[in-house]
Amino acid sequence: MPTYYTKDHEYIRVEGDTGTVGITHYAQEQLGDVVFVELPEIGRAVKQGGEAAVVESVKAASEVYAPVSGEVVAVNAALPDAPATVNEDPEGAGWFMKIRLADTGELAGLMDEAAYKALVGA
């Protein structure tokens, strides 16, 4: 299951034609305690780089951008009631949404794990 990263600190873990999207460990650390998450409705079409969700901490709010274009096929319904999950397990239980990829070619423009680690200096 290859995982790709964006410069805005989203990840997408691809299985077949679907990718699971969330924010990275580094991103949750920068945000601090996450207090609110707003997820898209299922079925919504998103564009690569377009706003797909919102994540808020006490002191910051930011958009979560879609790493790829496609259709939202699932969202993590448990997240709005337990936003702390984003801090505790961002790349596991703290996932945001699943997107059915419209064009797998878009993945080529994203970073792999090594490149992302280099970006955030990990």
């Binding site: 901490s57 006490v58 002191k59 910051a60 709010a61």
Partner: peptide
């Protein structure tokens, strides 16, 4: 809930 407000969200 101050993330709704101007000093954080600015133009949003």
């Amino acid at each position: 809930l101050s993330t709704r407000e101007q000093h954080i969200r600015r133009d949003k």
